[in-house]
Every structure is written in C-alpha cells, then in structure tokens.
Design a protein around this nucleic acid. Structure first.
Lengths: 134, 134
DNA sequence: TTTTAAATGCAACTTAGTTGCATTTATGTT
DNA sequence: AACATAAATGCAACTAAGTTGCATTTAAAA
C-alpha cells in the first residue's frame, strides 16, 4: 500500500488526513505483530501527545482500520485489520516470554454448553505460549 | 462446604486462617459468577484494606483456590476453582449488558494454524453476548 | 479565501493495582 | 500457657494506563 492509498483509506472512513494518522497507518503496515501504546510512542519519530494517540487508536478501531487486542497483560495492543471476517474472530498468540502478540490464522470452533437464555455475539481467544524468536 | 472445611482448605494450601480469608472463601462459595475487586469490597461487611484484598486474591490464585479472569473490560475478576482441568481451560461468558462473568462448561477445541516454532501452553477464551438476566 | 468541524496538545484527573514499612496476629515450639 | 517467628494486615504513597475538558490549530468543504 502506497501513501496515496493511505489517504484514500482515511477518506473512505471519513477521517481527516493528518501527519499523525499517516505515520500511524504506515507504522501498522510495517509491523507484523500487535503494537501497544508504548510501542507506538517509541516507534514514531515525533513524540506525540498521549491523548491524541489514544484518540486516534479509538477512531481507527471504530473505523475498522485496526483492531484492539487484550492479551491479559493489562495493556491493550493494536494490529492492522478488522477483528473478524464473517463473524469469526481470529485468535491471538501471546508469547509468555517477550509478550509479543501475533494474529493467528484459522478458526476457533467452540463446543460449549452455553446455558439457555444466553445469546452469543462473539468469541475472543488468546493462545499463550512461546514464540519462534524466544 | 462448611466453615470447618474452609479452614482445612487454607491449611492444605499453607495459608494462615484469618477472618479476611474465611470471609472471602465464604463469599466466593456463595457467588455463582465472577467477582471484581469492587464487587468483593461491596459485599464484605467490614471494609477491607485495598492491598490486603489484592494480596489475598493473589495468594488464592497462586494456591489454586480461585482463578483470575480477564473479561476485556480492564478489570480483573475472580471466581472459585482452578482455571483448568487436564490442560483444558474453561471459557468465560461476559454479558455485554451487565458485565457479569460466568464460567462455562465444555471444551474449546482449537483448529488454528500455529506457525512453526510456536509452542502453545494454554488457551483462554471469552464469549461475549447477552446473559439470561438481561 | 473564508468557514467550520474535526484534530491536536496540554494539564488535570480517574481507576486499577502495587510497594515499602510498621504493627498485629496465627501458629508451631518450649 | 508463654514465647518466638513468620506471615498477614493496614496505611500511605506511588505507578501506569487511559480519559476528559478546554483552548488552539488545521484539513477540507463552500
């Protein structure tokens, strides 16, 4: 994806094109694993205001540009793309050693005894283990 | 489980019998859904120090008396019992309306393409939806 | 070029959870 | 029962993630 396409992406989502947003999208495109607030702050050359960054992450999430991942470390992480396709959420792998979060291919077919009267909307799975680098 | 058994449980786990702990176990036994710090603080008659409560939750978790649940609201919740039996973690149902967390029966059989070099240790699943009460 | 709504930056705040330390209490030993 | 000791408690101060209100700036439509 070229810079031109980033601009179109923002326009399509009804978001204004700003330096911060272009830099953010660029960065997400380049990273193969999920990014925390701190990862992003460290990666972006120009230090960026806390609330500006958080607000952009929220906008991007709402627009479906990125998805938020809760890896159970207490810190939210974000990765490019929508969380689910056709209602199937992908799973996330969290390395117990380096805390890196990877998006996983494949399905999570549940066989649960959901009690009567409970309505399931979506399923989020996190797989913990050790990644290839550790 | 009677009070007597609570004492034995604590002894077996190498934890001292204290008022706080007996009250906590009692409360967990009575509740059918997971409890947050605030739930517990509100339920226990005698207001309890923040750090004492958190430290007891940690001890109980380490002893396998309760398990901690991350329901993606940013607040940890705790429920009676070990998180897994024979390596199979049970899933948790989180009501999107009232935020109540329920432990679910049944298995979560994964069919994921975990990349080469990745070692899976455990799988945590949260199911979001609307509970019977809402 | 002007207008306007949205984006940014700053500061102050909130909430969950942790840590250090002095005091108290449960329990094993004499 | 009295003592010793390690663990549990309470208090205060702190940390870290994330949010909010508001004044200023900027993108982009008119």
């Amino acid at each position: 994806m070229k810079n031109d396409n980033y601009e179109q992406l923002l326009k399509r989502k009804g978001l204004k094109k700003t330096k911060v947003r272009l830099a953010l999208i660029q960065h997400f495109m380049n990273m193969e694993h999920a990014q925390s607030y701190n990862d992003l702050q460290a990666a972006l050359i120009n230090e960026l205001d806390k609330s500006t960054l958080y607000r952009n992450l929220t906008s991007f999430e709402q627009a479906g540009i990125i998805h938020r991942i809760n890896d159970h470390t207490g810190v939210s992480k974000y990765a490019f793309g929508e969380p689910s396709i056709h209602g199937n959420e992908h799973a996330h792998f969290v390395c117990e050693c380096c805390e890196t979060v990877y998006c996983m291919e494949g399905l999570v077919p549940l066989q649960l005894n959901i009690p009567k009267g409970f309505k399931t909307n979506n399923v989020q799975t996190i797989v913990k283990g050790i990644c290839a680098k550790c």
